[in-house]
Simulated scan of single mutants.
Amino acid sequence: MKSGHRWLIFLAAAIVLCGATGVLAMQPPDGANVVVNEVPDRSLDLREMLRAGGAVGYLIVMLSLVMVALIADHVMNIRRSTLMPPGLAEEVHRCLAERNFDEAKKRCREHTSFLARVLHAGLDEIGVGYNAVEKAMEDAAAEQMARLYRRIEYLSVIGTIAPMLGLMGTVWGMIQAFLEFELKANPQVSELAPGIYRALITTLLGLGVAVPSLSAFAIFRNRIDELVAEATLLAEHVFADYRRALQMRKKSRERTSPE
């Protein structure tokens, strides 16, 4: 099984585990005494949770949809075959060996990928020397890596905002519950419970979005670090023969030059 498939399975398992944990947390313990005739079943369904969450709950649900779309997009784009198209390094290496630099640039322009942009930056400095080529590739790799980080940064933002929105909804719901409790003539403590549990729904929704969002952000960040390092090393290997050829010509000129 490929490593890319393994971490996708791990992400799906983590999301399922978080959902299962949330469901189990809402179930009563085995030893709890439940009076069937006096206490009705209060298990929560999604419709009731959304109704209790109010406007803040719907906003958190919208964030969850954005999160799912972002994860799907990153799964398709942050992978080895997308950042490093198969055969591109071999084609550019062959063109360099034939000193057909225009053809090498054309091959890079045909692929809008991380490796293609790094190689194209190096090819633009091909007549200046290898030091300039290496510096151009390092700058291009740093720029492309920053762009990849900015794309996944939205998952971190969602993972930070969602629980804050949930907390805000909970605080507002608690205020409403206590205000309603205060207006009653002879209030009972049990009358306060419905308002409190409804207020806590938004916190549950916020955490339900934050956990998979931050988990996906960490996985994609590590994935980017791994693929960027691999692509940068591959780009250096593409220019390895060109660098050796320059060094040999330089040594040959030094031997033949008069003292």
Rank of each mutant, 00 (worst) to 15 (best):
residue 156 S to L: 11
residue 185 A to N: 15
residue 170 T to H: 05
residue 151 R to Y: 12
residue 135 K to R: 13
residue 164 M to S: 09
residue 135 K to M: 02
residue 187 P to S: 10
residue 130 Y to W: 01
residue 145 M to K: 02
residue 173 G to I: 06
residue 148 L to M: 13
residue 133 V to H: 00
residue 151 R to E: 10
residue 155 L to R: 02
residue 161 I to F: 11
residue 184 K to L: 08
residue 186 N to F: 03
residue 146 A to G: 13
residue 132 A to K: 00
residue 158 I to G: 03
residue 142 A to D: 11
residue 141 A to E: 00
residue 138 E to C: 02
residue 180 E to P: 01
residue 170 T to I: 09
residue 155 L to C: 10
residue 166 G to Q: 04
residue 153 E to K: 10
residue 181 F to S: 07
residue 188 Q to N: 13
residue 139 D to W: 01
residue 161 I to L: 13
residue 140 A to L: 00
residue 136 A to T: 02
residue 142 A to W: 01
residue 192 L to T: 07
residue 172 W to V: 12
residue 130 Y to P: 00
residue 174 M to C: 12
residue 145 M to T: 05
residue 195 G to F: 03
residue 165 L to A: 04
residue 159 G to V: 05
residue 132 A to F: 05
residue 160 T to V: 12
residue 154 Y to H: 13
residue 171 V to T: 13
residue 167 L to W: 09
residue 127 G to D: 09
residue 185 A to R: 15
residue 166 G to N: 04
residue 180 E to D: 15
residue 126 I to N: 01
residue 160 T to F: 11
residue 186 N to L: 04
residue 141 A to W: 00
residue 156 S to K: 15
residue 138 E to H: 10
residue 162 A to H: 02
residue 173 G to N: 13
residue 159 G to Y: 06
residue 155 L to K: 00
residue 192 L to S: 06
residue 185 A to Y: 07
residue 190 S to G: 15
residue 131 N to G: 10
residue 192 L to M: 14
residue 146 A to D: 10
residue 135 K to H: 05
residue 179 L to R: 13
residue 134 E to R: 06
residue 142 A to F: 04
residue 126 I to F: 05
residue 195 G to T: 07
residue 169 G to H: 02
residue 153 E to W: 10
residue 190 S to Q: 12
residue 166 G to R: 02
residue 157 V to E: 10
residue 188 Q to P: 01
residue 189 V to Y: 15
residue 134 E to Q: 10
residue 164 M to H: 11
residue 145 M to Q: 04
residue 172 W to G: 03
residue 168 M to V: 15
residue 177 A to M: 08
residue 147 R to V: 11
residue 138 E to D: 15
residue 178 F to H: 08
residue 136 A to I: 03
residue 145 M to N: 03
residue 181 F to Q: 06
residue 167 L to V: 14
residue 193 A to D: 11
residue 192 L to R: 04
residue 142 A to R: 05
residue 176 Q to V: 07
residue 132 A to L: 04
residue 157 V to N: 09
residue 162 A to I: 04
residue 139 D to P: 00
residue 140 A to S: 04
residue 143 E to W: 05
residue 133 V to A: 00
residue 165 L to Y: 00
residue 139 D to M: 03
residue 179 L to A: 12
residue 136 A to S: 14
residue 190 S to N: 12
residue 195 G to S: 08
residue 168 M to E: 08
residue 180 E to W: 01
residue 147 R to A: 11
